[in-house]
Design a protein around this nucleic acid. Structure first.
Lengths: 100, 100
DNA sequence: TCTATATTTCCAGAATAATTGAATTATGGA
DNA sequence: TCCATAATTCAATTATTCTGGAAATATAGA
């Protein structure tokens, strides 16, 4: 992962609404959730949620799939993994075992 | 780690200057770096750096130690660890092995 | 004590980001 | 085709954050 991708992921998650959405999808797991279920669960207006989901999508933290007129969202654990790796890369002056 | 701490850490890192500072300190390891060395390395004004270091401090991502008139900064890998744990907690609908 | 250095604090202006109402697109069903 | 539902896009307003100049604090050394 490159710096700009990490930055996109971190700033996406560094906002309460989006962290809530992402955590909800992480806990939901493979089943994911429909956009409408997310807005119900978190009491968000559809357009606010949509804007925030777009930011999470662009950051590679979620993906989606249309189901009829609804759209199902999933957390993207690969994107998450890439972020964790970026943050700990080259850590501790070459003594990575002591890092984490 | 609680949500607000995670949020503080994520929004702290979700900004280019601070991510640069943090990464520099992560790579520097136990030796850390003086504030002046950081501002030289990243070409930042002292007051801008100071404001950003304060945000990283409050987020629990760095710590510091005075050395004469200079101040040495270190990355706080425990804070980092707490963040990673928060992000992956309860993941994947109770099938954590499949997560990461 | 006086001066220089290292860093922080305070404040204001500029730049970004978040939310919302209104309108639009996409799909499914009568 | 027409209507209802699900979600998105657009434009504007509000809120937050970032930076930088000036001043202040802390320490070291002459």
């Amino acid at each position: 992962m490159e710096k700009n991708e990490a930055l996109a992921a971190l700033s996406a998650l560094g906002q309460e609404t989006r962290l809530d959405v992402f955590r909800l999808l992480v806990v939901a797991g493979e089943e994911g959730l429909l956009a409408g279920q997310i807005s119900d669960a978190l009491d968000l207006r559809a357009n606010t949620l949509s804007a925030n989901l777009t930011i999470l999508l662009n950051a590679g933290l979620v993906h989606n799939k249309r189901e009829g007129r609804a759209i199902r969202y999933f957390s993207n654990m690969q994107g998450m993994r890439g972020l964790l790796d970026y943050l700990t890369k080259d850590c501790c002056g070459g003594a990575p075992d002591g890092c984490l």
